[in-house]
């Protein structure tokens, strides 16, 4: 940056006000790739947001992306075992004044409607504790402005992780 540009306070202020840290990645929906991506997200934002916010972000992203991986279309053709195509996830995260806004799209199976309906925890029966059914509860509990639509062969999911938990 030249001294001339630096001395222009209008431009400088406007740039700093508009520039927010972002993260964008295209990844295969596989648990190991998801894990690597989460570690890169953590690295990207760890000097920007609190450890508490980062922990909530990481948990929600893990739940969303591992759901895509877990519900990848099953390939019945034994010839293609292991070579079947994994869904591809596009992940974008932008820091805003009040939180981290996330947008994810994937070309996996359509999201069942009940995932987005208000959820409660699975019943905690002492004799028969549930071993699953927590993922979408956690996503709903930790996000704001959660919205979903499907267009063509892709799922679109967006939400915000607030800095201060309400």
């Amino acid at each position: 940056m030249t001294p001339t540009r630096r001395s222009d306070p209008g431009l400088g202020n406007r740039l700093s006000a508009q520039t927010q840290p972002m993260f964008h990645r295209i990844l295969n929906a596989h648990p190991i790739t998801v894990r690597d991506t989460l570690q890169d997200v953590r690295h990207r934002f760890r000097s920007e947001v609190s450890e508490d916010t980062l922990g909530r972000l990481e948990l929600v992203l893990a739940e969303v992306m591992n759901n895509v991986a877990e519900h990848a279309p099953i390939c019945d053709d034994p010839q293609l075992m292991g070579a079947g195509r994994l869904p591809v996830i596009h992940l974008s995260i932008v820091r805003h004044n009040s939180g981290l806004t996330c947008a994810l799209t994937d070309d996996g199976v359509s999201l069942p409607e009940e995932c987005l309906l208000p959820r409660s925890l699975p019943p905690l029966l002492p004799d028969d504790l549930p071993e699953g059914g927590f993922g979408w509860f956690l996503i709903q509990d930790l996000t704001q402005a959660l919205c979903y639509y499907r267009e063509g062969s892709r799922n679109y999911l967006a939400f915000c992780i607030p800095f201060a938990q309400s």
């Binding site: 893990a62 591992n66 071993e131 699953g132 927590f134 956690l138």
Partner: peptide, 16 residues
């Protein structure tokens, strides 16, 4: 450092 709902499910299975 980190556990997600599948990790929780594993802990519950061990408990059971």
């Amino acid at each position: 450092d980190f556990m997600d709902s599948s990790g929780l499910g594993a802990m519950i299975a061990v408990r059971k």
